[in-house]
Write a protein that binds this DNA or RNA. Sequence first.
DNA 1: AATGAATGAGCATTCATTCAT
DNA 2: TATGAATGAATGCTCATTCAT
Lengths: 202, 202, 202, 202
Amino acid sequence: MAKAAKQAAKNGVADKREAILRAGIKVFAAKGFFNSKVADVAAEAGVADGTVYLYFKGKDDILHSVFDRAMAEFIAEGQRELEKLDDPAAQLAKIAELHLSRLGADRSLAVVFQIELRGSTKFMEAFSAAAFAEYLAIIRKTIESGQKRGIFRDDVKSVVAAKIFYGALDEMVTNWILSKKPYPLEPLAGEVVKVFLGGMRS
Amino acid sequence: MAKAAKQAAKNGVADKREAILRAGIKVFAAKGFFNSKVADVAAEAGVADGTVYLYFKGKDDILHSVFDRAMAEFIAEGQRELEKLDDPAAQLAKIAELHLSRLGADRSLAVVFQIELRGSTKFMEAFSAAAFAEYLAIIRKTIESGQKRGIFRDDVKSVVAAKIFYGALDEMVTNWILSKKPYPLEPLAGEVVKVFLGGMRS
Amino acid sequence: MAKAAKQAAKNGVADKREAILRAGIKVFAAKGFFNSKVADVAAEAGVADGTVYLYFKGKDDILHSVFDRAMAEFIAEGQRELEKLDDPAAQLAKIAELHLSRLGADRSLAVVFQIELRGSTKFMEAFSAAAFAEYLAIIRKTIESGQKRGIFRDDVKSVVAAKIFYGALDEMVTNWILSKKPYPLEPLAGEVVKVFLGGMRS
Amino acid sequence: MAKAAKQAAKNGVADKREAILRAGIKVFAAKGFFNSKVADVAAEAGVADGTVYLYFKGKDDILHSVFDRAMAEFIAEGQRELEKLDDPAAQLAKIAELHLSRLGADRSLAVVFQIELRGSTKFMEAFSAAAFAEYLAIIRKTIESGQKRGIFRDDVKSVVAAKIFYGALDEMVTNWILSKKPYPLEPLAGEVVKVFLGGMRS
DNA sequence: AATGAATGAGCATTCATTCAT
DNA sequence: TATGAATGAATGCTCATTCAT
């Protein structure tokens, strides 16, 4: 097989996997993970039911893959952006901005993240723990660096402060999802940062 | 039937409903709502499968009832305690303390609240919205009263500040649940309050 | 216990059994035997669920008792009336008249007889056979007596002729039940007799 | 896919649906519709439980389909045969012959028609009404044509006469089903016709 | 790789019947 | 006798997954 053909095939593969992943996000967000049928996802993706199993181990795996991929992208982009900044306060502001702009740009993805991924204790324990911990760790390290520089108070443990920061952002997203009237999510980043930095100022 | 007997019968009824409710919390927390069988709950409660349907409309109704009852108790206790205090800062500290001590005292209930109740978009939209909004409203009003008194900065909307405060507390609980090693939850209330009040100081 | 009291008690018993029986006819006719709950019958009769079992062995027994009692009454009345008549043709006319007037007077009873009693092969085989055969036998004997007197042709077996006569009457009832617009059932007796006697004239 | 293969697949589908339909007739006849489990039908048909739902909406649908198909075939064959005859009397004789020979050839089908289909008032009202009315209408029209030709008396309404004729045939079948000793059903057609035509002779 | 017909384990719910009061 | 709360067996239907084509 020629290189070009291989690439095409690879793209084809990627396209199909991608389509199923997107369909999963859409369907899970709309009906909830447990109420969604694999057949729904397959139909939405425009493939046969059985085809789903060529790309994923099962229904759970679609959900996990949604999380894994989005989280990986999220973390990668975050680290790329953070490296450009030196000031911990500015870094936290960037994290908040990215967090809310990204989820605010894809309501379905946000629903899956805020609602569906938490519906399974098993999942939370087994899968999200690692990636999620990695995300929290990035926040924590940023805070620690601020504490070392004397910018942030250090009578609050960095790990606790990180949870406070993350929890505040997370709640913005959850409320935004559940709200009946639409409003832009990203601007709330500034508010969270304002209060948090105020509270952490040394 | 004598009064005493009537009372006994009433207690019997209450006991059975109560037993099913408790069993529901335990089972849902342990296996997740969607993975729990009505039979599991019945067995845990020590009643026959069919008996569950004498006290609840169905599986969903057990979950909803868990939420309704706990939330009602929570709000009632909260308001009772808040009335005793005058200072908004002290009131927020009390809310944080109650929030974490209550959920920290019943891990299963906490799991149901943090994990299972969110697994159902439908539920979140239809049921929790009202009671949940009421809880957020209590926090918001407390903040507003602090803003009016000039204690809290007013360049942050009270509704946003309330979400930040609630989100921080909520995240403490979620992390506590997911943590592999046990630790006391309530002490974190002080940390959250410290940072939040710092950030809201005018 | 005084005789009067005993009688009263007996009446009470009879009343309750009677009430359940009537309730059974009404409920079975309205919802179908298999779709009727014992609780429905009890409620309709104004007694507790458990009380039904003091008077009947179970749900089936109610249905059987409806049949047994109605059939016994029907046969008793029929024989009483037939004895008054001598002419076999007049006797058949009387049977037809009684058949249609009785069922035409109680639509619910008719529904139970035409529809519900046949829904159970078991029932048809085990119970109705006897009483039903008795009814057919009365018709058959009437026909035979006409054949002996030379009034009716005897190149048709009496048992077959009896089924024809009964079947014709039966169909009148079934159609009447299923008809959307109400009409008097009894007058059709004359038509059936007219054709049947015409066909049996020797 | 080649034409031959397509045809084979089509046959496969038809075969499976057909097998379930036959199994339904057999099982319903043997145990009664309400006492039959879908699993019984599936087992009898040699397919998995779930497969039944690929071909039928549910248990009810199997019963309805049995009726629809048999009735359609029955009416089609009847009309085909009736067209060959001119004499209304001969036509009625043919109807009787077909009616009894067809049901007499398939006891299970007869049981379903005579017993099970009537167990559901709903069914009788909603479904059978139309097809059943069509069958009665064919008989009625045949009688009317006889009345117009002066062969049949016209002091009996054709619709009533049709019910008498149908009722007589129907009763032959019901008795045949319930009879403990087997006997040929079809010969009774002649007896019914003999009496009916005698009664309708003008 | 892709299909989609077939599978069959799994489960919420109903309801006839019992029995302690 | 009467009650009605409690029981638990019974079952129609769904849907994740497989596999022959």
